[in-house]
Design a protein around this nucleic acid. Structure first.
Lengths: 251, 251
DNA sequence: GTAGAGAATTGGTCAAGCCACTATCGTTCG
DNA sequence: CGAACGATAGTGGCTTGACCAATTCTCTAC
């Protein structure tokens, strides 16, 4: 968080006004006075309550929005983000752009995260969440000739697996990294081949989860990710700069 | 499906001015014109370049700061965050506060992430990163009677393990979730007992990694986290509200 | 050569106001 | 009576211009 630097001081920091806004909202959330979907008080009131100016309030609200906590709609108001727990891709994308994560590093992280998620999903066997996975597999088979559409279903399948684990923390982490994968892959997926083979692997993962076979789910997910890593390496530009480095389009 | 709210428009979105600032910086980073530690142009110039007002620029910069991309120092300037790749704890803390992650869910996610990281650390065997782990273990043994200090070393050890995996993506994820753990545990660690046993377990994890024994590293990390989960359950308030729910102090 | 004072630079904030979008509610027309 | 319409307030988005506070630089005086 932003205040971490100053937090390490030994004395009680005097909060910057903008941070004060963030903290105020944080306290309201912790106190249960603000729940997902709720509307915040108008900026003008908030400014008066905290004794700061409106531009300052707006700066704080932008910070909250950047963390995925709030969403503002002109004319309507500012709302606490609803829906399932999500971590935006922004922070990780910037990190990728700044430090140049390699494709292999990302796949390694996915291997750990998603193999675990697939195993969990098979173990807990939340049958009501199986439909989503099934639909995405179907969508993949239906878009074998449209790489972009295929990719969307691909990413959504992996998120669905994480969601099927029943663990929102895991789901949020997988969602974050899958957003990163989507951003990078969007540019190269046109050169992909063997989409059918990829769809088959996803189907096998789904079936293993559906049958509650955790070991097989893990094995299939591992195989899929290893295969995908190799396949994507060949999608690379023949002699591009930074062959394996990934920049993660933040925009 | 709700993709990205604004991105789902079919027309080339007209960026809000504040987002324009974020995008501008993002493009500079992607283009390699802005690297960690670099200083941004002054707010006033940035405002003129983009044709927006300074409060708007400031709102965008606050958003970047919230994502951990920039840091501003009054009188000095605004800088791209340097140091090792980090994901701030803010977003995950807010998610925890909003959706009430349970302790078990967090431990489950840690189990997957950190067991994988420990295994990797043992496999790659980056000996120059072993010293940090060792130091933290030493620090734990030296602070058996000071729970708060012990906790700091505890958290740092787990981050060191992730760093020793050599995978910055994994390290960033572990750092994020360990921050969450620290925030919650800070309040209850005083009631902890068996700190010595905990330190011993960390030492065994360290030794397994040091000896390059990946299987043992995974086993020891798994045991440690399972034990810690049980131990922390007993640190709970006897009859507190929300027995297993966790709010994650964002502030 | 160095230390100190002052000026320039830069982030932090405020004040007042206009614009654009949304929602609501009363009115009017079918 | 109901539905389409239109005025009206409420709300976020942004600008201009200014002042304050912390830092950094520079130039002088010793």
């Amino acid at each position: 968080m932003k205040t971490e630097k100053t937090e390490s001081r030994d004395h009680p920091i005097d909060l910057q006004s903008a941070d004060q806004v963030v903290r105020h909202v944080a306290l309201l959330i912790e106190g249960g006075k603000l729940r997902p979907g709720d509307r915040l008080v108008p900026e003008r009131e908030l400014a008066q309550e905290l004794g700061v100016s409106r531009p300052t309030v707006r700066a704080g609200l932008h910070a909250l929005a950047a963390m995925g906590v709030t969403e503002s709609r002109q004319g309507a108001g500012t709302f606490i983000t609803g829906g399932p727990p999500r971590l935006g891709a922004g922070p990780l994308s910037f990190l990728a752009a700044l430090h140049g994560f390699t494709r292999d590093e990302i796949f390694e992280a996915r291997r750990i995260l998603e193999v675990g998620a697939a195993g969990l999903a098979a173990e807990v066997n939340l049958t009501d969440r199986h439909a989503t996975m099934s639909e995405e597999v179907t969508g993949m088979f239906a878009s074998l000739s449209e790489p972009q559409t295929f990719l969307v279903h691909d990413v959504r399948f992996h998120r669905a697996v994480a969601a099927a684990s029943g663990n929102p923390v895991l789901a949020a982490l997988v969602e974050m990294i899958s957003s990163l994968v989507y951003e990078q892959r969007r540019m190269t997926v046109e050169r992909a081949h063997d989409l059918k083979e990829s769809a088959e692997m996803h189907r096998r993962i789904y079936q293993a989860i559906r049958e509650g076979d955790a070991d097989r789910a893990r094995t299939e997910m591992t195989r899929h990710l290893d295969m995908a890593r190799q396949a994507q390496a060949s999608e690379e530009l023949p002699a591009g700069v930074l062959p394996s480095r990934v920049v993660g389009s933040v925009a």
